Amino acid sequence: MGLTFLQILLGITAVSTALMGGLFYAYSCSVNPGLGRLSDIGYLSAMQSINRAILNPVFFASFLGSLALLPVCTWAYFSYSVSPGSWCVLGATFVYFIGVLGVTMAGNVPLNNALDKADLTATSAGQLAEQRAAFEERWNRLNMVRTVAAVGTVALMVAGCIGLR
């Protein structure tokens, strides 16, 4: 028996959301603690570099791919069956849109943009400390929200995949 369109769509969507969940999880448990050990100039320079490097086609394929795939997957699932699995996928869509996209766009991106404009070479040690204090704790807290939301999205997608009969 071959795979149906819905099964393939669910699988691709689950993988895409899992990639995003893994990215945010890795930041939360390794990247952010590692960066936190750096000096102010080292931390801010590294975050500038990471924030610039992540804006690439591979990241956008997963981040925006999930954004596009989740509502399509939800529509396809509900077209097939109104069941607990379809409700899980709908939940995954809302969690991703609010907890991942919303937090990223309203919180992390403005912080990244403000940091990107900073000329760290022309800043005093005191100003670097202030800039880090204004950035690091808030960015990490927002990333933790994204991590929980992204992992929740993955869990809901897995439940949706299991619920397909």
Rank of each mutant, 00 (worst) to 15 (best):
G2L: 12
G2Y: 11
L3N: 12
F5Y: 11
F5P: 02
L10S: 01
I12V: 15
I12K: 01
T17D: 00
T17W: 00
A18H: 09
A18D: 02
M20V: 15
Y25T: 02
Y25D: 00
A26E: 10
C29E: 11
V31G: 02
V31W: 02
V31K: 00
L35I: 10
R37W: 04
L38M: 14
L38T: 03
S39M: 01
G42L: 06
G42F: 01
Y43E: 09
L44G: 05
S45P: 01
A46D: 01
A46L: 05
S49E: 03
N51G: 06
N51Y: 08
L55Q: 03
P57H: 06
V58K: 09
S62P: 03
S62D: 10
F63G: 03
G65V: 14
G65C: 10
S66A: 14
L67Q: 05
L67A: 08
L69N: 00
L70Q: 03
P71D: 13
C73N: 13
C73E: 13
W75H: 12
W75P: 01
Y77C: 11
S79E: 15
S79K: 00
Y80L: 11
Y80H: 13
V82F: 14
S83I: 14
G85Q: 00
G85F: 05
G85W: 04
W87R: 11
T93D: 15
T93Y: 10
F94H: 01
Y96T: 06
Y96S: 00
F97Y: 10
I98S: 13
I98A: 15
G102M: 06
V103I: 15
M105E: 14
A106Y: 08
A106E: 08
N108M: 11
N108F: 08
V109F: 03
V109H: 05
P110F: 00
P110D: 13
N112L: 13
A114H: 04
L115A: 05
A118L: 14
T123H: 09
A125G: 06
G126M: 07
E130V: 10
A134M: 11
E136R: 07
E136N: 02
E137T: 12
N140K: 06
N143R: 02
M144T: 05
R146I: 08
R146Y: 04
R146A: 07
V148D: 01
V148M: 04
A149K: 03
A149C: 11
A150G: 03
A150E: 07
G160Y: 05
G160S: 10
G160T: 02
C161S: 13
I162G: 06
G163F: 06
